[in-house]
Design a protein around this nucleic acid. Structure first.
Length: 782
RNA sequence: GGGCAGUUAGCUCAAUUGGUAGAGCUCUCCGUUUACACCGGAGUGGUUAUAGGUUCGAGUCCUAUACUGCCCACCA
């Protein structure tokens, strides 16, 4: 019998959690047909259809807030639905080491308060300390995942740095190396002085700041009394200029394209070239080109050298290109923010000091036309907020051409479907514009790049401003050169005495991008579960993560890693702002779960929300869903108390005579059909809403009221005299339909509110279903 | 600058793909106390941001405009 009183989610949910996990219901090895946990081999052999979701691994560095865990509710709905439809279901949980961000947080929040830094550790000690610290956080995260009801196989919870993942991640890199897709090259990178590391474009942000725009006159070589003026906020970088750029259609400069100017303060002459990116309206319409210290300039250099769009260029530009040839770069700022290379007397000066000196020297030469104040967008490091210094540096890169084309084709061929579908355009656009992937990170927390050097590797800037790599003191021209000379080997283990491993680690997305097959490989489940069915994650990492999983999945396995991608929106704080620790509007799971229960929180995540749309925490809604749970609880009590002794709950009604019963029966059929259709179409927010409406306002408000006269005597309100007795035949039929309706509703509701429905099921389930969970009851009606 | 969303009741949001604009909360009135620390019934409240267009029919499709948000980007 269901207990009296209102529903108490907190007590019930912890009890149900124990019941689920102790019985190992969420392992695919659990076979509901005989209630036993089989061996993995037996599971692989059985004829149930496989269904797998690889759960997005949360970052190891911080406890997730209620926004972060919303995805688990969706993954769980898909997983439970699959189980009820007879599939052997695996929800694979994991945790991500989040290389760069995690290391930053560890240094800032753990070591710095103790007055320590990386310098106090060896690399191995530091790694071990991180591992221990993050393991603690990961256990809390796992508890939160369980608490929300995620029906994952937690015995398999896997960390991205687990030794069983190692081979997979390294193997992919080595395969790429053998396929000629890995290269070490010099190119412009975002140097973060705060991180003392190269950071990816995605880890940068922009900030407005006041700057002084300085107009510098560059004398023409053919007539030093004439000048081309350029406007810049960074005059010190002029020492690294290799050209002046103008718009190819700018009439003011048409005659000058192809001619040379004398670069002041140096003895160099640099050409005037053209590129459509230059804005005629800004400054003087002529730009100094410093490819080593400006990403824009670097791009323009490449475009000039590769003659991008030259068939559309005016003839004089094409002629100039033939005459001038390619332009190069000169790196004049180094990682310590001091000047290097061919900078004459400024060598060794700090950037700021050099800037002041150069402006002063230019003034002395009367080469400054004017200055003006402007606001500019400066690139900053997203994590440390320090201003990014673009420099040339040698980095490991992955050539993405061979990764992105198959991914684009798979998208086009419909091998992957994105929900909502408009996001696939975003993904396509991103893939098309993808540039080579810099994968090295100069940190310790992560997978160390499996490249070995025969001796010390270093990077220096020579007198021409070129980056030179040296291994064991020997200059290296390129990768092939180093391999040929026997100075580099790519393998996981040390080639022997005297070999030194590359100090950098992989970008965290390099390992998490392999997550669908890394997880399944670690558990030896590839044959059964790859490719998986659904990837459910937040829309904001569509490019960062989903795109990379698709590319790497196709590259290593020859198949897309999942068929459908469901993207949920972000959940914001009640004020509509993004939740973040720094704003102090973070909400932990406990705060909600203790008061309202996990089922209620799941309803908030799901009901009425559509894929890709963000929404906010709304306490009124939470209160509404809490009442809904109580409504279900009471409706179940009502049905149960009106059932005969030993009622057979698996009975399906037939040959109904009473009009109200026919109506209720039809209502159940309709609701089942509608919800099933919505679930299959990934409209789970609407499915949940339909259930909410139908259960409360049709089943409870109408059908149960209409059933009452068939169940017990009706009394006159005033006199309390019995005015009608129920017909015994009608009563039996009504009981039959009500029982069927309740069971069906419990099943339909179960993916959304698993705790409550399970609790009710445990009280009313038939004798022969002992020890069973509602989670494996057949979704279909008969 | 480019791309992608969004703009619907006082508030927060839906509308199952072109077919009578809905829910929750709020507010008003009535009723219930043998499922409901509450529940039920009725009601107030919307020219669906604006202006055009396509269509028998538009919140939904097209064009433009105005705001809001996110992403990308190169204004030195």
């Amino acid at each position: 019998m269901l207990p009296k009183g209102p529903y108490n989610p907190n007590e019930t949910e912890s009890k149900i959690l124990d019941f689920w996990h102790q019985n190992k219901f969420f392992k695919p090895e659990f076979d509901p047909r005989d209630g036993e946990v089989k061996s993995t081999e037996e599971m692989k052999q059985d004829d149930r259809e496989p269904f797998a979701i690889i759960c997005p691994p949360p970052n190891a560095y911080a406890r997730p807030h209620i926004g972060n865990v919303s995805g688990y509710a969706y993954q769980d709905v898909f997983g439970r639905y699959a189980r009820m439809r007879g599939k052997k279901t695996l929800l694979f949980p994991g945790k991500d080491h989040a290389a760069q961000e995690a290391e930053t947080i560890y240094l800032r929040d753990v070591l710095a308060p103790q007055g320590k830094s990386k310098a106090d550790f060896t690399r191995e000690e530091f790694y071990a300390a991180c591992y221990e610290y993050f393991t603690g956080i990961m256990l809390i995260a796992q508890a939160d995942e369980k608490r929300i009801g995620l029906s994952a196989d937690f015995d398999r919870d896997l960390f991205t740095l687990d030794p069983r993942v190692f081979e997979t991640v390294m193997g992919t890199f080595i395969k790429m190396y053998e396929d000629g897709m890995v290269y070490k090259d010099v190119r412009i990178v975002n140097w973060s002085p705060g991180m003392q590391s190269v950071v990816a474009d995605i880890d940068t942000a922009r900030k407005e700041r006041e700057a002084e725009l300085i107009y510098i006159k560059y004398p023409l070589v053919e007539d030093p009394t004439k000048f081309v003026a350029v406007a810049t906020t960074r005059p010190e970088t002029m020492l690294g200029d290799t050209a002046v750029v103008v718009d190819p259609t700018d009439e003011r400069y048409a005659d000058l394209i192809g001619k040379y100017v004398k670069l002041p303060l140096t003895d160099r002459e640099i050409p005037i070239i053209a590129n459509g990116r230059v804005d005629k309206e800004f400054g003087t319409g002529a730009v100094k080109l410093t490819p080593a210290h400006s990403a824009d300039d670097y791009t323009m250099m490449l475009e000039w050298n590769y003659k991008k769009d030259f068939n559309r260029m005016p003839q004089n530009v094409q002629d100039a290109r033939e005459q001038i040839g390619a332009v190069g770069y000169i790196n004049i700022i180094w990682k310590d923010l001091k000047l290097v290379g061919p900078v004459g007397k400024y060598k060794g000066m700090k950037v700021n000091a050099a800037r002041a000196q150069i402006v002063e020297d230019l003034r002395a030469l009367d080469l400054i036309e004017k200055t003006e104040k402007i606001t500019q967008n400066v690139v900053i490091c997203d994590r440390t907020k320090s201003v990014i210094e673009p420099i040339m540096s040698s980095q490991w890169f992955i050539d993405v051409d061979r990764l992105k084309q198959p991914a684009l084709e798979a998208l086009k061929a419909g091998e992957v479907t994105i929900h909502p579908d408009n996001m696939s355009k975003k993904l396509e656009f991103w893939l098309q514009n993808l540039r080579d992937w810099p994968i090295s990170r100069s940190i310790w927390w992560g997978y160390r790049i499996p490249v070995w050097y025969k001796g010390e590797i270093s990077e220096v800037v020579n007198d021409e401003g070129k980056i030179v790599i040296q291994i064991a003191g020997e200059d290296i021209a390129d990768m092939q050169d180093a391999v040929k000379k026997g100075l580099i080997k790519v393998q996981t283990d040390s080639p022997g005495e005297g070999w030194l491993q590359d100090p950098d680690v992989f970008d965290t997305w390099f390992s998490s991008g392999q997550w669908p097959f890394a997880t399944l490989t670690a558990e030896n489940l590839m044959d059964t579960f790859y490719p998986t069915q659904i990837m459910e994650t937040a829309f904001d990492i569509l490019e960062l993560w989903v795109a990379r999983m698709i590319m790497l999945g196709i590259y290593t396995q020859g198949k897309v890693p999942f068929k459908d991608v469901y993207l949920h929106g972000l959940i914001n704080a009640p004020d509509g702002q993004k939740m973040s620790k720094s704003k102090g509007n973070n909400i932990n799971i406990d705060e909600i779960v203790e008061k309202y229960g996990a089922d209620t929180l799941r309803m908030l995540y799901i009901v009425g929300n559509k894929a890709g749309a963000s929404y906010r925490v709304d306490f009124d809604k939470l209160e509404g869903y809490r009442r809904f749970l109580n409504k279900i609880w009471n409706a179940a009590k009502f049905v149960e108390m009106n059932m005969p002794e030993n009622h057979d709950w698996s009975e399906v009604p037939a040959d109904l005579k009473i009009e109200s019963n026919k109506k209720l029966y039809q209502h159940i059929l309709d609701t089942h059909a509608e919800v099933t259709k919505l679930m299959n179409g990934f409209n789970i927010g609407i499915a949940a809403q339909v259930l909410f409406e139908n259960f409360w306002h049709v089943f409870c408000d109408v059908c149960l009221e209409e059933a009452k006269p068939n169940l017990y005597p009706q009394k006159d309100k005033q006199t309390q005299e019995v005015i009608s007795e129920p017909d015994p035949v009608a009563k039996t039929e009504t009981q039959q339909v009500l029982g069927f309706a309740l069971i069906t509703y419990l099943k339909l509701l179960h993916p959304f509110v698993p705790f409550l429905t399970e609790e009710i099921w445990q009280h009313i389930k038939p004798e022969q279903k002992k020890e069973s969970t509602l989670g494996y009851e057949n979704w279909e009606l008969s």
